[in-house]
Design a protein around this nucleic acid. Sequence first.
DNA 1: CACGCGTGGAT
DNA 2: TATCCAAGCGT
Length: 306
Amino acid sequence: MPVSPLHAPLLDWYAAHARDLPWRQPGVSAWDVLVSEVMLQQTPVARVLPVWLEWTARWPTAAALAAEAPGEAVRAWGRLGYPRRALRLHAAAVVVTEQHGGELPDELAALRTLPGVGAYTAAAVLSFAHGRRHAVLDTNVRRVLARVGDGVENAGPSATAAEYARAEALLPDDPGEAARWAVATMELGALVCTARAPRCSECPVADACRWRAAGYPAAQTQARRPQAFAGTDRQVRGRLMAVLRTASEPVPRDLLDEAWHLPEQRERALAALAADGLASELPDGRWCLPGTHGPAAAGVAPAGAG
DNA sequence: CACGCGTGGAT
DNA sequence: TATCCAAGCGT
């Protein structure tokens, strides 16, 4: 479906207004594109930028990352949030190194088996890094298609088969053009067709937008209430991880105890972090990031020697 | 499938 | 100040 009234205006708009993001530079490896995609899962571009630059300079390849302790990845992750992503990226690096000769797979099924790589991220790598023809459905694209195509303010809670079918149908035949279309659609959602206060006066496809034509009807179904944060285990986990991240030496328990005032919740959060492999307890009772001080023992039984 | 999972800037 | 939101994934 190469010809629609949307394509030329949107591609032209992207050529003129695309952000100059480092992971879009020519020559960036597929692995580094993957790193950017994982970092960008639920985290704004502005915060990813400096971390991605440091990370890719320090670990230019999957093998380089795989050679490190997982805790070093967690530490380098800094305050991007959701540090399990750092653990998954490290685990993916190990798989790529040990099972794919250090080369990130370029097939959908193989990518999808990597930890932290779901439907969106796999399609993004294929499209952005390899210039292949894949529907790339992230929250931005889904919002754009919902507004322009369906005339509603927001997409549903999760991508449906119908949305994939539409995105697929809109893809230009030429792979390279399809890849540009994919990133252009995302960029429009990120810069113009935003969740709040969309800049419709700057939109290259405003004339074709059903939501605009309908007078911007408000969403009928109210979105899922954002999960609370203050006082939750998530906040406690974040406090504990911040202590472990900033400490160069293993930290004694009483230092962790200062991170949260409720002992029961603190214990629960710390146990959960250990179970997730984000924190390790040493034999002397101190805590550290996994593998950063002695053999990694993320809450698992010590393996027999040899 | 609904939920848990961090963090901080913008409104 | 509280709420919303940011290129999702795994269970």
